[in-house]
Amino acid sequence: MPAFELTFIVLGIAVLAGLVGSLTGLGGGVIVTPALSLFLGVDIRYAIGASLVSLIATSSGAAATYVRDGLTNIRIGMFLELATTVGAICGAMLAGVLPTSTLAIVFGGVLLYSAWQASGTRRERTKSPEPAPFARKLKLSGVYHSEAGDTPYAASHPGWGFGMMYGAGVLSGLLGIGSGAFKVIALDRVMGVPFKVSTATSNFMIGVTGVASAAIYFGRGYIHPALAFPVMLGVLGGSTLGAFLLPRLPVKQLRRGFAIVVAVVAVEMIVQGFRGRL
């Protein structure tokens, strides 16, 4: 395909990924990799490299806003990044030895789970559980400012959260995704951090987690500039557009509809993986 055409198709995919990512909460990575590998026939390793670039771009862009608005808990994020970065390095090493068809199958599985997760409804917790003494010592706490007033919170079960974050890091490094769905579950359900703070903090962590594996992938030549630059520009444009459209669109229905699309793509990746075509 001529470079001109390819650049614009990749740019379009990335805009869509950024748009969908900010509207549904599913990271751009779950769109970039399947779109590049399934539709454009790009080798899955290049697709994963491009996807990592997309998630570092969106995380840095979104995190800047969230941090400014005081939603992100920098302490909790930094503490858990110990686990996600080590996990990401392990995942990137593992990716180097696994066959690409296995990567495609695991990717499909994670995609299915994320789709199911994104289609569900959220509930706000009213009372946070008792913080662990360890969490108190590290001051893993904060105040969540909302329209209903200020709610103080503190993280509980830091050990479980830490372990889950390691797992999220491995998946992130292995597949070049942000694994935001897993990070939010660890923060929100396990550690009892308010949902919005969980989302913001997860977003904040995705960039650092992504870099831990991207640095390794960069050296292995997974990141090709001809794919990386349109992905970087497109995904940033798309997520900016998404943030603008977010209050004007029926997000709940969009999320449902999109979850179905992702599930179909996931099954396709698993099938192609088993056939050894990816």
Binding site: M1, P2, A3, F4, L6, L36, L40, G41, V42, D43, R45, Y46, R220, G221, Y222, H224, A226, L227
Partner: peptide, 12 residues
């Protein structure tokens, strides 16, 4: 802009 690009083989 008119060069052919192919990413189906991984060159690393």
């Amino acid at each position: 802009g008119t060069d052919r690009m192919d990413f189906s083989t991984f060159l690393g």
